[in-house]
Structures are given as C-alpha cells and as structure tokens.
Simulated scan of single mutants.
Amino acid sequence: MLSKDSLADFQSVLYSRFQAESDSGPVELKLTEVEVKQASPQAEQFSLLLKGPEAPFLPQQMYRMNHEQLGELDLFMVPVGKGKDGFLYEIVFNRLVTG
C-alpha cells in the first residue's frame, strides 16, 4: 500500500499502467499526465490524468487501483473527456505535507 500518495510517487510512474477494479472486471488505464496545481511547503495540490479504453466506461466513484510499483490505492476518479479511442479520467489530490 502506498504510504504517502505524494506528487513524487506518481511522477516516478508517469506513462505506466494501473488497473482499476470495476463491476465488469479489471480495466487497464495509462497514467498520461501528472499536473501540479499548486504547491507550498505545507500542501501539495496535483492531479493525475489517465487514459482508458472505450469500453467499459467507468463512472465517477471510488476505485481500487492496482499498480506494480505503488501497490493498491483507493482513489476517487472522475471521467473528464472522450477521445476517438477511449475515455480520459482525472484523480485530484489536495494533501498536507508532513515533516
């Protein structure tokens, strides 16, 4: 299990694959972008953009995500767009930085 969910953790696995557990089985997603929204010594605000297949569509909700390096994560994912070959999903983080 990922202990921090930090910006650096996700930047280190950019372009790698995640599996989201859904009602129709595991769905493979590719991490295509890690965007810093704001950062300060006290907090990190960033988002992940993941690309998924055309089917199945994953609605907005919590998902158990699995990653080879990061392990299991429970994350809230939102669909944000559709391209010609699949859907785009976003996960947003607002977290306090601890010493």
Rank of each mutant, 00 (worst) to 15 (best):
L58T: 04
G71E: 03
G25T: 06
S24D: 13
L70N: 08
M62W: 13
S47L: 10
P53F: 04
V78E: 15
F57T: 12
A8Y: 07
M65G: 03
M77D: 02
Q69P: 05
Q19I: 00
M65E: 02
I91P: 01
F76S: 06
L2W: 04
G86E: 06
G99E: 15
L2G: 05
L29R: 04
L7W: 02
Q60L: 14
Q38A: 10
Q69N: 11
Y63W: 05
K84W: 13
L75A: 06
D74T: 12
Y15V: 00
L14D: 05
R95D: 00
K4L: 10
M77A: 09
Y89H: 04
L7I: 07
V34C: 02
Q60V: 11
G52M: 05
M77W: 04
D85H: 15
T98I: 13
Q19V: 05
Q42A: 13
V80T: 14
L14P: 07
P53S: 11
D85R: 15
H67P: 04
D74L: 10
E72I: 11
M62A: 15
L31G: 02
M62H: 13
S24H: 10
D23A: 15
I91D: 02
E44P: 06
V78R: 11
V27L: 07
F87C: 09
F46C: 04
F87Y: 14
E90W: 00
Q11K: 12
Q38K: 13
P56K: 14
R64S: 05
V13A: 01
L73P: 00
L7M: 08
S24Q: 14
R64P: 00
D9E: 14
Q42K: 15
E33D: 14
E28K: 09
K82T: 07
S12I: 01
P79W: 04
K82N: 08
V97L: 12
P53C: 10
G52L: 06
L49W: 03
D85L: 14
K84Y: 13
S6A: 06
A55P: 00
L48C: 05
Q19S: 09
A39R: 14
L7E: 07
Y89T: 03
L75S: 08
L29I: 07
E28Y: 09
F10W: 02
A8S: 10
L75F: 04
D23W: 08
L31E: 01
L50A: 02
V36W: 08
V80W: 00
P79I: 10
A20W: 03
A8F: 08
E35Y: 09
V36E: 11
L96V: 11
